[in-house]
Nucleic acid binder design. Structure first.
Lengths: 210, 210, 210, 210
DNA sequence: GACTAAACGAGACGGTACGTCGAGTCTTTGT
DNA sequence: ACAAAGACTCGACGTACCGTCTCGTTTAGTC
């Protein structure tokens, strides 16, 4: 079992406890991926992490906090945002990057959480949305720059375009359970660009005035 | 002497059991919608259905079978497929119909199951895919007729088009937790049509040769 | 809606009931002997009697009444009281008869009830005592006749003598779980006679004045 | 049941468990005395012991083992064996001691088990016999000494004599449900002595050669 | 010999207790 | 002094049997 990427180090003055901390979070994610949120057992996590149950409860108040923590850790994982000033290439690269990440162990874990009752936990839901908003927020300037360069119509909503791009990918993963490849990403990118150039993805269309 | 009743088959004098059956399935779906699969309690279901716990176990072997049964029941629900020979209007109507269904209690229940650990149960996963395949399968001829009428490019893959249509809707419901309205459906329909007319949604693009 | 009929309003004695009645009581005793009172199952009794559970509940209000009824039936079984005007021979015969009866199926059933929680049921306890009192009451005149004939000391309490006779037999069956044979009965008879002739078994000795 | 006394190595750092252990056994005996084996409820035992049901199941595999353990504990209770070198006085004292013990809470519990379906449990049956054999085994030397001193006939079987002594007491308790007093014990002692002095209680009479 | 009403077969149901599993708390002990 | 070990409370699981209920189906006694 490979440990999850360390991510931003959390300065806990616990000494060697940090090792335990990471082991438990990694074990939690592994169990989450394998058995889902229902069926998640603190005792199994403890066993897999080579740690006693009480040790877990000393650090996390309950199962929800533990899962939340593990997922938040995950949501911090970054996806590089391509920016080559060629919006067609950039969107294709963005889509392929997303597909690659979703097929990686980390991405699988995130998907497992998305399609799980764990997503009902408020903190997890927040982390989930933060993850998406963060990515879209970081990619939006690239799209906006393309608009400013005239590669896309004025008024194009970067968020709407990006969502149009990623939607087919998640549909296949979460709903129809079809395999997702780079072809899927490429088609999605083309569709999104075509729609944008047809002037369909303006903010008004997606966020009507209240 | 009385002749023996004809045939070895014994008709079941099903008493009032049918009423109980329905009440339990309804209660199961309600609980599933409210609390998710984890946190689902047979005792709560029994209480809500006004039935005793053992009665439930008499009809369903365990919690999984119960949930499976409830969801399969659900998956049988049909969505009318519009067919006015105007593909633009039909797709918009299809999208709006889907949105309306997803906002109904039944749709909410289906969504709750989709985004739940219940989907890990093999039978539930099968039911889930059957639901989608069935709908797409029933809508595909309408799209194909439009192709035949020349309203869409030759070679357009009906399934790919329909998936492009529904993807943004599910993305908002399952991932970004944004509200979904008829506007969402309309935009999605336009995007899908535009992409199709750009020749992006051919079968080849989605199912590349091995 | 009572149809008027001539004579007393006596329900029609529709009659295969008696057969069922006996079958159930027999099955009850068999189960009682095999598995004891704890572990007694109405459903098993029904199965053994070739009868449906509800049929049993139609005739007996609950398990206790059923067991009570079965045992009371049993307690009515009679043991012949020897009377040859030779008290030594009679007591020996009485002891041997008791041993034989206790080793018979009926006796085994009675023992099973004696050493069972069924004896806590008031009606069963009464039946149990009635059984013993009845036997001792029927044998007492024989002993009293021996006293009158001068074969035993004046003042000898027949009940005390008979109890002294049967006590070792029941001790072996109920407490020490030793086998009981005719030798046991013979020794017990001799002991009882010796004690009586020593003047130890007068009523006063057992029922001291208050 | 007492844990093994601590040796050089302590494999079990038993917590406060010992207190719970005793409380549960005591509650088991109390319930057993009050309601018998049938009708014995683990949940009631737990409630009475101020302990949770699962705690009981952690220590005892099932109800049978629990009852067995409680009774075995009981069977360890000792009865002092009088030895004044006056066999008449000693037997009377033995009888009175037995009566006193049987009227005590401990004795009542033992009787409750004797006359219960719990006695069908193999381990309980063994414990029961061990209890009796142990007591008779410890009293036998006193009787044998009396034989050696010439107070009883040569060849007298101590076990046979002692059983003759205790038989009427158990008969009254288990069968006829009469009250048992010291008078009962005194008479029984006299009867046993008289029988022994008449040469009736030799081993041969009770244990015929196979 | 047909009618009719009691008795029976069948089985679902509410309910109690079983024995099991896991969550989360608390206590004892070793170092 | 403090953390590991594990015993404890609590709640739900899925099972067995109790005793009740309501249907239909014999079956025996009367007409």
């Amino acid at each position: 079992m490979q440990p999850v990427s360390a991510g931003p180090s959390r300065p806990r003055p616990v000494g060697r406890g940090a090792k335990v901390h990471r082991a438990v979070l990694a074990a939690t994610l592994a169990e989450l991926t394998e058995t889902g949120y229902a069926g998640l057992t603190v005792e199994n996590i403890a066993k897999r992490a080579g740690v006693h149950k009480t040790t877990i409860y000393r650090r996390w108040q309950d199962r929800e906090r533990l899962v939340t923590d593990a997922v938040i850790d995950l949501a911090a994982s970054t996806l590089p945002i391509p920016d080559s000033h060629d919006i067609d290439a950039d969107l294709r690269a963005f889509g392929r990057g997303l597909v690659g990440w979703l097929n990686s162990p980390t991405g699988q874990a995130v998907l497992a959480v998305l399609a799980s009752d764990a997503a009902r936990l408020p903190q997890v839901a927040k982390a989930k949305q933060r993850l998406f908003n963060d990515r879209i927020g970081r990619a939006a300037p690239v799209v906006q720059a393309a608009v400013d360069r005239g590669q896309l119509p004025v008024g194009t909503d970067p968020a709407a375009l990006l969502k149009t791009l990623i939607a087919p990918i998640y549909l296949r993963l979460l709903v129809t359970a079809e395999p997702v490849t780079e072809t899927t990403a490429d088609t999605a990118a083309q569709v999104a660009l075509t729609a944008a150039r047809a002037g369909l993805l303006t903010g008004a269309a997606h966020q009507p005035a209240p």
